[in-house]
């Protein structure tokens, strides 16, 4: 597993560097397009953080299974090691979510909710990534469409385009949210591992 850990750290560094470019562009676009629809910078920060966390939660676990897997397994990685070590790719999303929530002045429950939701989103992404591998190109296309809809709607929703910004803020105050996210995460992890452990790589 040592090899996979070193590999994962190196891979993460490469991915984050690449992701940064996308996020910077995203930042510029959202600031330019939507800065007029939000009244306070705290709300903007929180929503923007939500979007970045979402993007990172989407990108890292998914690409770990679709691209990182290729290199790792051609060099002799094990499925267990790859899956376990791959969990660390969910950390950036969690940390980003935490960071922006704290920056936006949130404390307590909303912070926990945000962080756990980010983790759940990453688990969802991982599950979809493995599923795409199993289904081949069809799965990839289907997932891309779903991720696009999911992510796009979520992002727009966070920016208050479809609904009142207040809804989002209320939602994150709901105590059921972290529990629901944890449960969802557990289920997704179990499903993902089942799908992955005997798969051809």
């Amino acid at each position: 597993m040592k090899g996979t850990v070193r590999f994962a750290i190196w891979w993460l560094k490469k991915q984050l560097l690449a992701t940064l470019g996308i996020l910077l562009a995203y930042f510029v676009i959202t600031k330019v397009l939507f800065s007029t629809s939000v009244s306070t910078s705290n709300v903007f920060l929180q929503n923007f953080g939500n979007i970045i966390a979402g993007a990172v939660a989407f990108l890292l676990p998914w690409t770990w299974f679709l691209e990182g897997k290729h290199l790792a397994f051609s060099m002799g990685a094990t499925r267990k090691g790859f899956f376990l070590v791959g969990q660390m790719h969910k950390l950036p999303a969690v940390l980003i979510s935490l960071m922006f929530l704290l920056l936006a002045g949130q404390r307590g429950l909303p912070v926990v909710s945000g962080a756990v939701s980010a983790f759940a989103a990453a688990c969802m992404s991982e599950c979809m990534g493995i599923w795409s591998c199993r289904m081949g190109r069809k799965g990839l296309i289907l997932f891309t469409i779903m991720a696009g809809l999911f992510g796009g709607l979520g992002a727009l929703g966070s920016m208050g385009v479809f609904q009142d910004i207040g809804f989002v803020l209320q939602w994150i105050q709901n105590p059921l949210l972290p529990w629901g996210s944890l449960l969802l995460s557990a289920v997704l992890l179990a499903v993902s591992w089942q799908m992955f452990r005997k798969m051809d790589v």
């Binding site: 090899g3 996979t4 070193r6 590999f7 679709l66 290199l71 790792a72 051609s74 060099m75 002799g76």
Partner: peptide, 29 residues
């Protein structure tokens, strides 16, 4: 197991660099 390299990966073109493969090999072998 040194496989035949493919210019296409699952998601599209294989954009890994030669040094990426060498680096990964160094980590694993």
């Amino acid at each position: 197991f040194a496989r035949e390299m493919s210019p296409i990966l699952f998601m599209g073109p294989n954009t890994y660099k030669v040094k990426d493969y060498l680096r990964a090999a160094r980590m694993y072998y």
